[in-house]
């Protein structure tokens, strides 16, 4: 007799746990032909709220880690993903990808994670500066994470799109609340299991599945979210911009094909950084009054 398979239950990822949506609702993820492949949590605004609370709480722990340590954790994500490659390939195929394309997407994702792992302890060196001011002061500018970032995962790419924006956000020490790809959601939840197994502190990344149209508002109007990232969705840009005004969220919108190799780089990290400038007096380097 054929063994009865254990089916996977897809839950959301919030605060380092895998709860069901507090709303109890679900929606069906469908394959290319329209056949149901899984019940997905239909996240609610309360799930968004809880995720933001978790992300805020985790910010100190994540941004406070040494850059080297964050680098190791990102590399660990790549290692774990490499080990679970086949699972992701299967999910991509289930969601309608051709096998060779699915393999490439997973491999590219792993490589992209490694790429950002390498940046963690370097980007600050490139964008920082010691500023030669005309007075007896030492003055330097450096990056600091912007804080809690809301990410609406690219809707045209299941895994690589998510990885392409999530990695630079967390490489820079931010924590993140992700609205998963609505129509291709499987990989995002499975990816949260990878994150969970990779020493990423609970709450640093939170992933919610559901209807983007419903969840955008609670996320982009949330007063404790510091920045928002999304890709495509040009029809929603104005709405997202308007929602973001109240606490002056930094809104980053991209219109890119994340499968391309040139869609990675330093600036995806610095897009989610604040520049902080610090001054301190120095004795004996000329007068305190500048000689204008």
């Amino acid at each position: 007799m054929k063994r009865v398979e254990i089916l996977k239950t897809y839950k959301i990822y919030s605060g380092g746990n895998f709860p069901r949506t507090e709303s109890g609702r679900y929606y069906l993820a469908l394959d290319k032909k329209g056949n149901p492949i899984a019940n997905m949590c239909m996240g609610s605004r309360k799930d968004v709220r809880n995720a933001v609370v978790s992300a805020r709480k985790a910010l100190g722990a994540w941004s406070g880690k040494t850059a080297f340590n964050r680098s190791q954790i990102l590399y660990r994500i790549a290692e774990v993903l490499e080990g679970r490659k086949s699972q992701f390939i299967e999910e991509l195929i289930l969601q309608g990808s051709q096998k060779n394309i699915a393999i490439k997407e997973v491999e590219d994702s792993i490589d992209r994670i490694v790429y950002y792992a390498g940046w963690c302890d370097k980007f600050c060196q490139i964008g920082s500066s010691v500023n030669p001011v005309s007075s007896s002061h030492f003055n330097f500018s450096t990056y600091e994470p912007v804080g809690v970032v809301g990410l609406i995962a690219p809707q045209d790419s299941s895994l690589l799109g998510l990885v392409s924006l999530l990695m630079p956000i967390i490489a820079g020490g931010n924590t993140c609340v992700v609205l998963a790809n609505e129509s291709l959601p499987l990989c995002s939840i499975t990816f949260s299991e990878v994150l969970h197994a990779s020493d990423v502190p609970g709450g640093a990344v939170n992933i919610i599945t559901g209807h983007i149209s419903e969840l955008i508002k609670p996320l982009s109007t949330h007063m404790d979210v510091n920045a928002l990232a999304f890709s495509g969705l040009s029809e929603l840009k104005k709405e997202i911009d308007l929602f973001s005004v109240e606490n002056l969220k930094r809104v980053r919108s991209y219109d890119l094909n994340w499968q391309n190799t040139d869609t990675q780089g330093l600036h995806y990290i610095t897009d989610f950084q604040e520049v902080k400038t610090t001054w301190h007096p120095i004795e004996n380097i000329g007068g305190a009054t500048s000689t204008y």
Partner: peptide, 11 residues
């Protein structure tokens, strides 16, 4: 006493 601050004040 911070010397730079003193210089500023004196100026």
């Amino acid at each position: 006493v911070d010397k730079v601050g003193v210089e500023e004040r004196v100026s």
